[in-house]
Amino acid sequence: MNRKIIITGTTCTGKTTLGKKLAKVYSIKQVDLDDFHFLPNWVEKEDKVFVDDVRKELKTLDKWIVTGSYQTLLKDTVWQEASLIIWLDYPLNLILRRYFIRTYRRVFLKEKCCGENYESLTRTFSKESLFFWIFKTYWHRKRRMHNWKENLFSHKKWIVLTKPIEERRLKELL
């Protein structure tokens, strides 16, 4: 089977975590988009450089699991190549709960994220806060994914999960 999988969803849905689990089960390399997007000190790569870097990495692989969003940046490249899209369409209250747990681990337990970066209290309460980002993007991304599933990428295989417990069924669906 041609396994080129995208795991997408809004911030804090668990895309990377699920990707790591599936990568291990199926012996497929996981490519986390945040690791490609962020340079040290939270510097973001230019869009073209980011897309080119991701494409170069994927060209070296016969099968892959790409985790992350960056949907509009990658819709003409990675999304075209994908054979399966797993959309984590989780409710906002779950995402917010995960945000607070993740922020605690990253800020107070110094868990590394997004390449070589660390979150801080200052960043947590700044205009770049993930908390604000969630509210800014949640409904827009939901509408986009519904549209892409029904129209732009209707020819692709989709698995839409609405609760984390449904992740257990993925082995049956893949």
Rank of each mutant, 00 (worst) to 15 (best):
T16L: 05
T16D: 04
L18A: 00
L18D: 04
L18I: 05
G19W: 03
G19D: 06
G19L: 01
K21D: 10
L22P: 00
L22H: 01
V25F: 10
Y26A: 03
Y26F: 15
I28T: 07
K29R: 15
K29D: 12
D32V: 11
D32F: 08
L33R: 10
L33H: 08
D35W: 01
D35T: 06
F36V: 08
H37N: 12
L39N: 11
W42I: 07
V43E: 14
V43L: 08
K45H: 13
K45F: 02
D47R: 14
K48I: 12
F50A: 05
F50R: 01
E57W: 05
L58M: 03
K59Y: 09
L61G: 04
W64Q: 05
I65N: 07
V66P: 07
S69G: 15
Y70L: 06
Y70K: 09
T72N: 13
D76Y: 11
T77V: 08
V78E: 11
W79K: 08
Q80H: 09
S83W: 10
S83Q: 11
L84G: 03
W87M: 10
D89K: 15
L92N: 01
N93R: 11
N93Q: 11
R97N: 15
R98L: 05
R102H: 07
T103K: 11
R106W: 01
V107R: 08
F108Y: 15
K110A: 03
K110W: 04
E116H: 13
E116M: 07
E116L: 14
Y118F: 15
E119C: 04
S120P: 04
S120R: 07
L121Y: 09
T122V: 03
T122K: 12
T124Y: 11
T124Q: 10
F125V: 12
S126N: 09
K127Y: 08
L130T: 06
W133H: 13
I134K: 05
K136V: 00
K136M: 04
T137S: 11
W139M: 01
H140T: 14
R143I: 10
R144A: 10
M145N: 13
N147H: 15
K149I: 09
K149E: 14
N151G: 02
N151H: 14
N151V: 10
L152H: 10
F153D: 10
F153C: 05
S154A: 14
S154Q: 12
K156G: 08
K157G: 05
W158G: 03
V160T: 15
V160P: 07
